[in-house]
Nucleic acid binder design. Sequence first.
DNA 1: TTGTACGCGTTATCAT
DNA 2: ATGATAACGCGTACAA
Lengths: 318, 318
Amino acid sequence: MSRVINGGPASEATRTRVLSVLETTNYRPNLAARSLATGRTGVVGLVIHEDAQMVFSDPYFSAMLAGVAEALAEKETGLMLWMGHQTKEKTLSRVLETTFVEGIICTATMSDDPIVDGLLASGIPTVLLGHRRHDDSASYVDIDNIAAAEDMVEHLLDIGRTRIGHITGDRGTVSGEDRVIGYHAALDKAGIVERFVVDGFYTEPGGYDGAMRLFDQGVDAIFAASDATARGVYRAARERGIRIPDDVAVAGFDDLDFAAEMNPPLTTVRQNIPAQGRGAALTLLKILDRSSDTAKRVILPTELVIRQSTLGGGAGWA
Amino acid sequence: MSRVINGGPASEATRTRVLSVLETTNYRPNLAARSLATGRTGVVGLVIHEDAQMVFSDPYFSAMLAGVAEALAEKETGLMLWMGHQTKEKTLSRVLETTFVEGIICTATMSDDPIVDGLLASGIPTVLLGHRRHDDSASYVDIDNIAAAEDMVEHLLDIGRTRIGHITGDRGTVSGEDRVIGYHAALDKAGIVERFVVDGFYTEPGGYDGAMRLFDQGVDAIFAASDATARGVYRAARERGIRIPDDVAVAGFDDLDFAAEMNPPLTTVRQNIPAQGRGAALTLLKILDRSSDTAKRVILPTELVIRQSTLGGGAGWA
DNA sequence: TTGTACGCGTTATCAT
DNA sequence: ATGATAACGCGTACAA
């Protein structure tokens, strides 16, 4: 009967006969048995073990998840999901125990992450979303945070701002650090020595607190490391009666849906987050198909989206 | 060797001997084979096949997912995830094909959903998140939307409002319909005949448009079917120069994180969304353990959270 | 074209 | 306490 299910040789007579039996018995093939026989399962894993606050503070991770899920659904591949509800060590061992997943997609935001270390050491095919500089032989999908941040700060310079502050992302993350690097690089190039850097943790409250401190230092522009952070900057500015962009230009990072609807609309860096998830899924499937051992690296483009939070004085909102 | 892995009888000598071999060979048991032998897999499925706009317009679904994932992680149970990237029929058959999942948790927001129909018809153990009135024999976890909406409208009556409008949720959803029912029930009880109901689709833009229309009808209170919707109401009020709560009291539903941080803080119905996800997961595991055939229904409590958007005139924000 | 027997890796049962 | 062996359900190679 297995011959007729898959395209084996079988006469038309028996084929229809078998099919009718399958129909009436409501037959469902046992995937565990099939997997045991074939060695393949058609299931991959996704590990999103991040700080709960990060996962919920902005839609970054749900967009990533959606991109991964969409690509896998297209390719008829199952998705096992692990999130950060245990210790990283515990999650890692749960993942490695789950021997029927053929490969893993794992977020790699922190510079230091035992899950990523363990996955790479285990030899199971793995694609990282993001990457650390010391992951020499890892496959990953990422954007160029340094270049994107540099472009944004250059834009702030272009519109004539010179006292440019930066509210960082989470300092434990590679993306956060890289955006700081890009910030400094742009100012270095412009020969500007004054720097205003405060920690923001990628959160709205972080942006609020950071903005308050930067306002005190007399900045005329703020590059926030995320759109959520920029939201906090807006709130602080509203409380202080500071006009955007007239008094202080504000820029974010991500181009989440709400960025265009902020008041004024937020200048930001567009990174196509679902595309990163899609890219990771497709890359993993490619690796599994070809079982090629060379690492695949994909750097997705970003785009500067200039809106009224850095462009000439429209109607203030305060 | 299987005896020492699971708690079979074995002498201390052989136990340590076997363990050391497992250690050195980096042995990982094949779950497919184990599943074939035992008939259990320790994996359940979660189906979130909703409109993409709904999934991303507010954190409802990610919170639900987090609750499910957390409870399953605690119980050392694997999670397979299906989202809405195919047709419902396609997704349904993919889920039913995946014979190694022991049970399914499925969101049931729409009054009519072929996935829910198919799942219930298939006989696979299923727990719904939400429910339809005609699912007689289904297990589910839900809240009492009718009672919660009724309580909220009664609160608006208590503070002296009489021209109360309602911006509905998505009219295809049970929760949306039930909140409309609760709205009417409260006004019926109060003997108020004037009703102002406009469609809002659970979205921020829906709230904005709906509020504009309700303002034209001279309402003195708006019960929005979700916090996201209420956000749209705030935006409309700001544009019109309408003060909250002085001119129009505003209430939402969900008590998402941002509700307390709105300006003014939003009166809303708190529903513990992760708890619903947790409840569904634990209910499913209970069914799988006991293989009891009686349906389990769980109605989780909601709570009226009264904040300044319906309480006396604090400092306006306009 | 079709029937059959073996193997996939594990658990469970039966002897030992 | 331990060793041998039959399942579990499927794919497949071989024989008919």
